[in-house]
């Protein structure tokens, strides 16, 4: 632990907020896409696709935040483990 401002609870909140933001953005896009679909708009498919992409990228953002959080806590082993996971996700994009 470094400093008083960075605690385990703060780390938990950072991860929580990352996940919540991702889900909220995705839901907003999916709702918009649904409404556009009901209105028979051609943009519906693209907006739904964007909503799904945001959802899929939410765990990726969470892993990036874990790297930051563990690094800041001085837990380099776990920061490295998180980095490996992020690299694997990048590999999946290329696969």
């Amino acid at each position: 632990m470094t400093g008083q401002t960075w605690s385990e609870a703060g780390f938990g909140r950072l991860i929580q907020r990352t996940l919540q933001a991702g889900v909220a953005c995705s839901v907003a896009l999916l709702l918009l896409g649904g409404v556009l679909g009901l209105a028979s708009s051609a943009a519906s498919g693209a907006v739904l696709g964007a909503g799904i992409l945001v959802l899929v990228l939410t765990p990726v953002a969470r892993v990036a935040m874990l790297i930051y959080g563990f690094h800041r806590s001085g837990e380099q082993f776990f920061a490295l483990a998180s980095l490996v996971v992020l690299l694997l996700l990048a590999l999946a994009v290329l696969a």
Binding site: V56, L57, P59, V60, R62, V63, L88, L89, A92, A95
Partner: peptide, 11 residues
């Protein structure tokens, strides 16, 4: 499981 699902869903 969010991360393992993300890894395969990207494919």
């Amino acid at each position: 499981m969010g991360v393992s699902a993300a890894a395969s869903v990207l494919i």
